[in-house]
Computed example of a mutant assay.
Amino acid sequence: MPDALEVAAEPNRRRLLQLLASGERTVTELAGHFTVTRSAISQHLLLLETVHLVVARKEGRSRYYSLDPAGMARLRALVEQFWNAELELLARDAELLAARKTASAAEDLTKDSP
């Protein structure tokens, strides 16, 4: 089974999540925002539902989709975990680079001294 981050990364599914952030919508309402077929949108929604990012309810002949708050919280935690790890690596790299520049500058001063 794919993970939520992988599923949400696809541009059409990401757009569906953005549209659903404003509230519940039918497949037909959502499909109106895309150039792909309604069937394709349904498949994207089914995958989003599989990884618990959206929930669906049926009313008559219509299916209404909305964001799954618990699933979206897990996705946010995954993104934050990734982002925090990346920021830590960038900060460490910046510190190493600064230390190298300081050492190099000190070495240049030593070479220039009589």
Rank of each mutant, 00 (worst) to 15 (best):
L67E: 00
E107V: 06
Q81L: 14
L87G: 08
H44K: 04
T50S: 12
G60D: 04
K101Y: 04
A106I: 08
V7R: 00
E10M: 12
T28M: 10
L16Q: 00
L30A: 07
A40Y: 14
F34A: 04
E29C: 08
L53R: 06
L96V: 10
A73D: 13
A31F: 02
R61I: 10
V27L: 13
T50G: 08
L46Y: 13
A91C: 07
K101D: 08
T110Y: 12
L78Y: 09
V54Q: 02
L45T: 00
T28Q: 14
E10N: 11
S113D: 14
L45P: 00
L45N: 00
S66Y: 05
E86Q: 14
E10G: 04
L19Q: 03
S104Y: 09
G32D: 08
R100S: 09
A77W: 06
A91Y: 09
V27W: 02
A73F: 09
L67D: 00
F34I: 06
T35A: 09
S22N: 09
E29R: 07
P114F: 08
L17F: 02
V51P: 01
S22E: 13
D68S: 06
L5V: 03
F34Q: 04
M72S: 03
Q18C: 11
L48S: 01
R15S: 03
R15P: 01
L97P: 01
K101P: 00
G60A: 03
S22F: 09
L75C: 02
Y65Q: 07
V36P: 02
L67H: 01
L45R: 00
A31G: 06
L78M: 14
A56D: 11
R63Y: 12
